[in-house]
């Protein structure tokens, strides 16, 4: 309970100089988008296996400790397991009757339901993994710059791209801040006799609920501080046609093109495999 940040890797950036961290953020985001699109489309085990291979390859490239990345997914996966149970129990389809294993009222467990739910959840896990890897290997500033550069054409349509990206980045930045804040509050309350992570579930929830209100308060204070700080530095997004310049320009290298080509190939392969494989 006290060292929560140890268990949550969401929104962290690990600057270990690996190939993945060095890729141009625009390339990374593009690769991410097409791979995510492909993973969302596939459903068969053959292509899911290929996807697993790809994730293992990315993991190797990232040089991050596997345990660390998995640890960050633990909570998500346990949540998914609960979801899995519901998916299986409430799964209905026309051809299901043949494969029913167990039946009680509206609840049924069938082979078809299990297989279908497994496929769906594996996909969700891959998506979560890809997202966390993108965040672990890209600093927030890079992510923002990359997204802004990619979305720039949308400005023609009158979309406030810079502002949207800024809002998104600030929101992301608040995740680790809030985690630190939860850590601080739980230490502060533990030193005055509140017990965390012990007792029955009701007691545990009661202990956590004491943190919620102060968490909101300090969150709001942070927002106020942030807006003051931005204002003090004369931050204006699109004031009278001002253009914000960048300290670091993005450079598109050959490796970025290579990454993009590989991702595209992978997507084609995933989709093709999904079409031809029978299961």
């Amino acid at each position: 309970m006290i060292e929560i940040s140890r268990h949550i890797s969401f929104g962290q950036y690990v600057d270990n100089g690996s190939r993945l961290t060095r890729l141009d953020p625009r390339a990374k985001i593009l690769c991410f988008v097409i791979v995510v699109a492909a993973v969302t489309y596939i459903s068969h085990f053959a292509s899911l296996a290929l996807c697993l291979l790809f994730c293992l390859f990315l993991q190797w490239l990232s040089r991050l400790p596997l345990r660390y990345v998995l640890q960050g997914m633990r909570m998500f996966i346990s949540f998914l397991l609960i979801l899995f149970a519901f998916q299986v129990l409430f799964y209905t389809s026309s051809t299901q009757a043949a494969s029913t294993i167990w039946h009680w009222g509206v609840l049924t467990v069938s082979w078809e339901g299990i297989i279908h739910s497994t496929q769906v959840d594996l996909r969700v896990i891959f998506l979560y993994y890809l997202t966390s890897l993108l965040m672990l290997t890209t600093s927030l500033v890079d992510l923002a710059d990359g997204a802004e550069a990619l979305l720039r054409p949308l400005r023609r349509l009158g979309l406030p791209v810079h502002e949207l990206v800024m809002v998104f980045v600030v929101a992301l930045k608040f995740v680790p801040l809030l985690i630190t804040e939860v850590e601080r509050l739980s230490i502060a309350q533990a030193t005055r006799g509140v017990r965390f992570g012990r007792g029955n579930p009701l007691q545990r929830i009661r202990a956590l609920s004491g943190i919620i209100v102060p968490l909101f308060m300090s969150g709001l204070q942070r927002v106020e501080m942030l807006s003051t700080a931005m204002e003090a530095r004369c931050y204006r997004a699109g004031y009278r046609g001002w253009r914000r310049s960048k300290l670091r320009a993005l450079h598109w290298n050959r490796s970025d093109s290579l990454a993009l080509v590989c991702s595209a190939l992978l997507c084609a392969l995933l989709i093709a495999l999904n079409l031809v494989s029978p299961f």
């Binding site: 060292e3 940040s5 140890r6 890797s9 690990v14 270990n16 991050l64 400790p65 345990r67 660390y68 640890q71």
Partner: peptide
Amino acid sequence: TRMRGTPF
């Protein structure tokens, strides 16, 4: 060890 099991 602070942040045991992480890169930090």
